[in-house]
Design a protein around this nucleic acid. Structure first.
Lengths: 254, 254
DNA sequence: ATGTCTTTGTGAACGCGTGCACAAAGATGG
DNA sequence: CCATCTTTGTGCACGCGTTCACAAAGACAT
């Protein structure tokens, strides 16, 4: 900490805009990188550039947390890392279960980054009896019969669903009944949950389709600009008549 | 197609709000499910419920595409599937390359859903020479030396980055230089790209951190409601002093 | 101490997205 | 052909998020 700290403790955690919350992890990552390079302070301009956002937005975001900057100087990196971590709840550790240990589930389990920010893989759960006991990422897979026991025994409140779409809602219901109140869903389904339960969704298929939309638009505009009207770029079109929705375990839906 | 079609072809693809574009894949999935069950028509109310959105929002979304409904009846499922597919550019097939065949890259490659909506894995690329030639999901991994050749030879315009964070920007630069104009980034980094290139980001760590924030807020409110003020739920806190940012290949950043 | 220079914190304007509520359109039955 | 009933398409208002632009705060030099 380079300079004096007038900063107020700022317990006004309430009322932080959702959009701001979604950016805090971004700032935190950039700040962590600076911290590792032992950079003592950073200006909103620099940090915003590192996080890929507008500097005014960043300052406004931070203003919701409290007044943690020093005018004329910038923000104290270590102090800000601590404040954001605290705000995000990363100063405690969160036991997480992953349900559905297919390709994606295994990839998630193997992902070392879990441990690095207050998250800990408490258990891996799969419905396949053949998987039971088999270690993935050093953790033995447990059968889904024991799901409730596992959740409650470990005080798990965050669950990750990496099952096929068809199983997702049932798994979700069991997780919620067992006490899970936050779910990260990789299955291509809309989960319905009671009030008070948060669901976030990661859906590769949707992301790709959004990219395809813009890609098509680019191609169309390019074609319209150069010659006639019919899109011409990146074609290899066969119109892909796919079979029924494969109800896949992994990232991508339909 | 049950009833008469007054619908206009609606080539006004321009000016579809981004939020709407992001929901189109959701509608498409719900419609595909209906189509497989041979449901001929669906009302905005039903479809909205299936997609987990407000019916007014859905109708407004569709209104950007054109007038594809029939008052008093609803929407023709098959016709709408076609229109949305076309709007999203899914009537042509998009060759995609995946760069970085670690746990996640392999999971993505194995994901059958790729083929099911106009996307085709054209190549798998990894920097590790030991991986070269090794088949993953039936596709031989190619070395990143040949990246440019592969991109150009297959007319690839969409690239998926599943490399460690440290390699992501370099890979990105090469992809863009080779002609890729849409990137789906799984690496925990902010990619900088020239204008005209779209980047979408999937970041497990951020999703988890957002969940943790809300989880903490719930716990805090609960505690405040019952007794004193200090949060008490779901604790197992050890404050997780993690090592340096592991620069992991997979989904999760820091 | 005083002035200058940097950088924060925020008031205000703007634009996008959402949801209500209803008129218009069309189907359906008599 | 008319009345009724269902469901779409959308005008409108509201709220959230973003961005600009600037005054206030503080560091630093003299």
């Amino acid at each position: 900490m380079a300079t004096g700290r007038t900063h107020r403790p700022a317990t006004r955690s309430r009322g932080i805009p959702e959009a701001t919350v979604a950016r805090l992890p971004l700032y935190l990552r950039a700040l962590t990188a600076l911290s590792e390079r032992s950079v003592p302070t950073v200006s909103s301009e620099e940090l915003a550039a590192a996080a890929g956002v507008n500097s005014a937005k960043l300052r406004k975001d931070f203003s919701y947390l409290g007044s943690y900057g020093t005018r004329g100087v910038g923000y104290d990196v270590e102090y800000l890392v601590y404040q954001i971590s605290r705000e995000l709840g990363l100063t405690q550790d969160w036991p997480v279960v992953i349900v559905g240990i297919g390709n994606l589930g295994a990839a998630l389990a193997n992902y070392g980054g879990f441990a690095s920010r207050g998250f800990r893989v408490a258990a891996l759960i799969d419905a396949d009896p053949a998987m039971a006991g088999k270690p993935v990422a050093g953790i033995p897979v447990q059968h889904s019969d024991d799901l409730e026991k596992i959740i409650q025994g470990n005080g798990v409140s965050i669950g990750v669903i990496a099952t096929p779409a068809g199983a997702a809602q049932a798994v979700c219901d069991r997780l919620v009944a067992a006490g899970v109140t936050s779910i990260l869903n990789f299955a291509p389904t809309v989960l319905s949950v009671p009030d008070g339960v948060d669901v976030r969704k990661v859906d590769l298929s949707i992301e790709l389709q959004i990219l395809a939309f813009h890609e098509q638009r680019k191609a169309g505009e390019e074609a319209a600009a150069s010659d006639g009207g019919v899109p011409a770029a990146a074609t290899r079109g066969e119109s892909a008549d796919q079979g029924p929705d494969g109800d896949m375990p992994a990232v991508m839906p339909a």
